[in-house]
């Protein structure tokens, strides 16, 4: 609260012109302004600057075709093709082709569904970590703090190396559940990017067999050890992520 003999601070002037003061503080400041010519001029000039800044900042409008692409992105599942007229012969051919495709797809459906679903779930977990205000449960760059935190929480154990690849730092960890199975989430900073490492038991059948894939611009790398599956999700450099995966895999090897 301002005293009569004091002038307003820069922060108070800014907050006042931005309408960010609570009513009581605003009232106190306005009372001061009534008797302080210097502060009154400061507030007026700040209001002028705010108004002039609004005018000077240009708002860039997206070109119509760009806006159309954005809108299309909002509803990826919306059908894009107009209705067409089909002949009976083309319908029969189509039905036969569909049966063939269905038979083929049934052969690979389970694995694809599991791997795609899991990849999406892992990506969601990673994105939630990036975009939410909730940090991982344990925040530390010390492996002796992070690893013991999982004791008693997981039906398996894992090791963390003494040192990580250059530019890679452990940030913390959390316990999560993937398809109902407990998993360890380790959070790393790899260069300027954040990486989420998910550790699950090998008995957990949801892990796909491919070593690397991309999903929505994110790299998802997989590796397995004797007992564990490791999955890394990040938009960082894939080669840097591979180094992190290698370091983690090497540490799980029996000595």
């Amino acid at each position: 609260m301002i005293q009569d003999h004091q002038h307003l601070s820069y922060e108070e002037v800014s907050a006042l012109v931005d309408g960010e003061l609570i009513p009581r503080d605003a009232h106190d400041l306005e009372q001061h302004l009534a008797s302080c010519h210097s502060c009154a001029l400061s507030v007026i000039s700040a209001m002028q600057l705010k108004s002039a800044t609004k005018r000077a900042f240009k708002r860039f409008a997206p070109p119509p075709e760009v806006l159309t692409r954005f809108r299309a992105r909002l509803l990826p599942e919306t059908p894009k093709n107009p209705a067409r007229v089909y002949t009976a012969r083309s319908l029969i051919r189509g039905a036969l082709a569909a049966c063939l495709l269905l038979a083929l797809s049934l052969l690979i459906r389970r694995e694809v569904r599991q791997s795609s679903g899991l990849a999406a779930e892992l990506l969601d977990q990673h994105l939630a970590l990036l975009s939410s205000d909730s940090p991982p449960e344990v925040i530390s760059s010390d492996r002796h703090t992070v690893k013991p935190w999982f004791d008693g929480k997981l039906p398996f154990s894992f090791n963390l190396p003494d040192a990580f690849p250059s530019g890679t730092t452990l940030k913390g960890g959390d316990l999560i559940f993937l398809d109902g199975h407990p998993a360890a989430l380790l959070v790393f900073t790899v260069g300027r990017h954040q990486a989420s490492v998910f550790l699950t038991q090998r008995s957990f059948a949801g892990t796909p067999s491919v070593a690397r894939r991309t999903l929505s611009g994110f790299t998802i790398q997989y590796a397995k050890t004797q007992d564990l599956y490791l999955t890394v999700v990040s938009d960082g450099n894939p080669s840097d992520l591979a180094l992190l995966v290698s370091a983690l895999v090497a540490e799980q090897s029996p000595r």
Binding site: F60, A61, P62, L67, F70, P76, S216
Partner: peptide, 28 residues
């Protein structure tokens, strides 16, 4: 888009950033 343009100072980058933002936001 406008904010992405101010950040990147480039039309193509701004579009890429917004596209990726939509994708990430939709998933999250």
């Amino acid at each position: 888009y406008s904010h992405a343009f101010w950040l990147s100072r480039n039309q193509e980058d701004a579009e890429d950033i917004v596209q990726e933002t939509i994708s990430k936001a939709l998933r999250a």
